[in-house]
Amino acid sequence: MENPHSATLTQEQGSSLWRDGWIRLCKNHLALFGLAVIAFFCVIALLTPWIAPYGYEQQDLQLGASPPSAAHWLGTDIFGRDMLTRIMYGSRVSLLVGFVATGVALVIGVLWGTVAGYAGGRVDAVMMRLVDILYALPFMIFIVLLMVVFGRNILLLFLAIGAVEWLTMARIVRGQVQNLRHQEFIEAAFSMGLSRWIIIRRHLIPNTLGPVIVYTTLTIPNVMLLEAFLSFLGLGIQPPQSSWGLLISHGVESMEEYPWLLVFPGLALSITLFALNFLGDGLRDALDPRASKD
């Protein structure tokens, strides 16, 4: 810190990394398309209460399940509820779970993994064994207990999912940091007398960004599916609320009779996941620090 030379060096590197990254991302059309799709879904989700064509629990038992028509663009489910409306409301839950729980997992996992990988030795051993313990606990019982003790709460669901998903993240980050730690540029930063936190923040974390971003784009869909799985088992969100995952798992049961109940929520989820993956790909390429040397 005392060395003015090193301070300007790291700052320069930091800012140019992000700026260069943005420029490179803009050149990647697929990634931009992914970003646009996600942004579009987010805007729709935000505006749903004002633009949805029907109420999400509004039934028409006489109508029952009907294929797409002028009145119901994506058809209706067996209660005669408009599928477009339900998918729009479902996107609110799914996207929120996806982003919030992944955010939780990201923050805990990256910090935990970096510290463990950087510290090494006994600290690393203790921290990673704690991860092992949490990996091994029966997840279902854990969720059931959370729901019973704290009541049903969608925030809790996010926390519970986040609390499980950070484990793999921590392992991946730790592996990366361990690999980086003894590389020349880190040793060089050490010899320059930079403090540990600066090294972690300025050098280790940015250099692990590639795998972290790849894994994050994989975690978001994973979290959405986990939410669906939990809801399906009765441990997640409550009807008549819905999420994409829940719509799909119900749609599967009648896929031969009412395919539109499966196809449309399936498409919504798949398109989002594809978009996320393209975006993650683009981000990874854009933020690769070594690529910036070329």
């Binding site: 990647n28 697929l30 994989l218 869909p221 599916l225 669906a228 799985f229 399906f232 995952g245 799909i248 798992s249 599967v252 896929m255 031969e256 499966l262 399936g266 989820l269 798949s270 996941l273 594809f274 993956n277 790909d281 390429d285």
Partner: peptide
């Protein structure tokens, strides 16, 4: 960042974009 990248990756992604409770019944069907 060429089609040689996108095509195999998109194909591999199909698995992740289709949860097993969707993939399984579809394959069975």
């Amino acid at each position: 960042n060429t089609p040689q990248d996108y095509l195999p990756m998109s194909a591999a992604m199909l698995g992740i974009c289709m949860p097993s409770f969707l993939m399984g019944p579809l394959l069975v069907l």
